[in-house]
Simulated scan of single mutants.
Amino acid sequence: MMGQRVSLTRLAHEAITPALREGGKAVDATVGNGHDLAFLAAGVGAAGKVWGFDVQEQALTEARHRLPRELASRVTLLHAGHEQLGAHVDGPLDAVMFNLGYLPGGDHAVTTSAGTTMVALEAATSRLRSGGRMTVLAYTGHPGGDAESTAVEAWCKRLSANYRWQLLNPTPPTESTPRLYLVERV
């Protein structure tokens, strides 16, 4: 619809849905307030497993409260940065979601950064199964956010032929708008 703002979070969920399956494995690399975590936990079903990473205890606490009881047993929350993904998660993974930047309602001085994000992206893609998908929602409106978003796009462009990627923004992003990337292992 003209004039209606498209939710990039909703687009990320739609892009990940085809990769989710009963008994699958997924990662929420940046738990935040737990919305992607709950989405992934529902998508992997009762026999599935989801790992959630965040450096802020506040985010993990919020996610625990938001997570319905029937989904909680599928989730392992880790008080660690997403760059620790490789040390805690085995593949093959069906889905990985990144929502970069800072915790809404939290300390805006605590943000993701290009350095740790690149380590996490490498670990995540190396664990994706064939047909597995990863979304990266990169925000530019915080200190370092533009550099992080630029680094994510440059990283996507260097991916091997085993992966395909695309920018999912419905309209070309401006300097200050978030960017949503989809990576799929072929």
Rank of each mutant, 00 (worst) to 15 (best):
L182A: 01
A80P: 04
M118G: 10
R129L: 02
L180A: 07
L11C: 10
H88C: 12
F53Y: 10
N33W: 08
D146Y: 15
A95T: 03
G105T: 11
W165I: 00
T135K: 03
T112R: 04
Q58V: 12
S126G: 08
L103R: 09
W51F: 07
L167R: 03
G24Y: 00
G115D: 13
L20C: 04
G32E: 08
E153Q: 09
D90K: 00
E148R: 05
L128D: 00
S176L: 13
F53Q: 08
R129M: 03
F39E: 00
Q4R: 12
G86Q: 03
V44E: 01
P170D: 07
N169C: 12
G32Y: 03
K157A: 15
E83K: 10
V50Y: 01
T177W: 15
L60E: 05
G141P: 04
A147S: 13
A120D: 05
V27C: 01
H108E: 14
A38T: 12
L20T: 00
T116Y: 05
G23I: 13
G23N: 07
E175D: 15
A95N: 04
A46K: 08
R66W: 10
L71M: 07
P18K: 06
T111Q: 10
T150L: 12
S130K: 13
T9A: 12
T111F: 13
L78K: 14
G34W: 01
L182R: 00
V110H: 14
R10H: 12
A46I: 06
A72G: 07
A147H: 14
L77D: 04
R185C: 02
D107Q: 15
L167H: 02
A29G: 07
N33Y: 08
L103C: 08
T135S: 04
A29Q: 03
T117G: 05
V55I: 13
T111M: 11
T174Q: 14
Q4E: 11
H108C: 15
V55K: 06
L128S: 00
L8E: 11
E57Q: 14
A120C: 08
F98H: 00
S7D: 08
M118F: 06
P170W: 09
R158E: 13
W165E: 07
R66A: 06
F53C: 09
L180D: 01
L103E: 08
T125S: 05
M118N: 11
G81F: 05
G45L: 12
F53E: 04
T174L: 12
G105Q: 10
T171P: 14
V186W: 15
T17A: 06
V152A: 01
R127K: 02
T61I: 11
D146G: 12
F53S: 08
G106P: 09
W51K: 06
Y102V: 09
L103H: 08
E62T: 14
M118C: 13
V110M: 13
P92G: 04
A109K: 12
